[in-house]
Design a protein around this nucleic acid. Sequence first.
DNA 1: CCAAAAGTGTTTGAACTACACCCATGC
DNA 2: GCATGGGTGTAGTTCAAACACTTTTGG
Lengths: 264, 264
Amino acid sequence: MSAAKAPDGYDASDYPPFAVTVDLAIFTIRDGHLKVLLVQRADDPYAGAWALPGGFVGIDEDATTAAWRELAEETGLERFDGHLEQLATYSAPERDPRMRVVSVAHVAFAPNLPDPRAGSDAAAAHWWDVDDLFLPGLTLTGDPTDAPDLAFDHAQILTDAVDRVAAKLEYTTLATAFVETPFTLSELRHVYETVWGVRLDPGNFRRKAETGSLATKDPGTDPRPTGGRRAAVYRPTGTAALQPPMLRPDGARAKTTATTGGPR
Amino acid sequence: MSAAKAPDGYDASDYPPFAVTVDLAIFTIRDGHLKVLLVQRADDPYAGAWALPGGFVGIDEDATTAAWRELAEETGLERFDGHLEQLATYSAPERDPRMRVVSVAHVAFAPNLPDPRAGSDAAAAHWWDVDDLFLPGLTLTGDPTDAPDLAFDHAQILTDAVDRVAAKLEYTTLATAFVETPFTLSELRHVYETVWGVRLDPGNFRRKAETGSLATKDPGTDPRPTGGRRAAVYRPTGTAALQPPMLRPDGARAKTTATTGGPR
DNA sequence: CCAAAAGTGTTTGAACTACACCCATGC
DNA sequence: GCATGGGTGTAGTTCAAACACTTTTGG
């Protein structure tokens, strides 16, 4: 392989041209399950298969700006009060059979995202239960024959994305991005239980949430009836890091042998 | 902002062309300090400033392959027995004034890397002490007037890279990539002390290294005289994750408010 | 012998687990 | 009342920090 060197005075004819795209793994929690938004492809390649939403990076924007723009287009939301961050970049030469495409994948999550609408380039859009997808290194709890075909290298991207979300709950306060403010500690605990696939002790969770500066008490209680006592309401503390971290119990959705050694 | 959409049947004329490069933050430990390899630029832009080594991604390789190739070229090593991983992608539109360049930054570290040689496109190459660089969000312990000018957005990349290295020592066994096998526990402890900028208790460190499957005992002792008792020698366990993690004490090189929320 | 580094043991305290128990609300 | 979920208290355990102490080597 004799790739081009990078002389200081290079001009446009010296470098191989690439297309740069963003792909988004947008997560939300619905009906007690971790869901991700996928769009069904209308045309070849991978016609009929399901793919992460995404699109080209414009010549005048950076990847994160492009990801925010695509997020707004795909969810149809004016104001997105969740979280978006870069995941990793996928650049295998044959990952798109049409042309040389490098994709900067991002992860987003938010509470209560509305039903998706199909875009011009997609036959359909749907919130898929993560446990119904066949992802390398993760256990599929549903029926394998119901699992959708995933286009391109999106199974790998999704595996890395799920890993990232599960890991970030441990040492950051990002769980609060999955619930609407204000929230009850039950709702926040359900985020951990859903993403990790475990049950947490309510009393111990309360202690860690308060001492670890994950949530702070609001005045008043939740007006919605729950069948029991009314819960106190909380809001995020504004702190980014959880100190000490929330430990992931044995049996929780585990780290896979991720190809991208991302940040914690 | 009207960036191109991504119709399924796009052809090459539909997308904005980008150059894709890799930049490497190559770390080693020398003289008890954390060092990073920088090359001095010969030509404009940023002539005379110091930059991370890097180069174009070839049309037939992925970013990680390009990073390994550049690593071999810059260090001149036949066999590199350290660690290389993707860090993040930097894509601000004006980050290179000449053209639209997206860079996939990588982090590498290894023990005892040799003195660098200047490449064709660099006036000089040098191992810089990380504490002598002026990095946003990190404290500079040396003389600010001696700090080199950093080209492009490489100060930001370096900040994220140092963050990543410091964080990875906590919950992985990657510290062993900074020492030659076999190693003594003192050498391994010096890795943590150097990267984090703290002193660790030798007794407690020994316990954690053995119980947390960071290192395993080899037969024999280190033949080199140290001025004291001969140390036992150890080798990596092959485990990737440190369970439980090595806690970073107060005062350790801290996480900055990183722009890239990397994996842990 | 003395200094310096390797390695062991012990005490203390923080924090997590598990589980029992009381409180508030709907039916 | 009784079921259900919210919230508090507490005993036991695990583990890390701090530090004293012993062992081995070079001079």
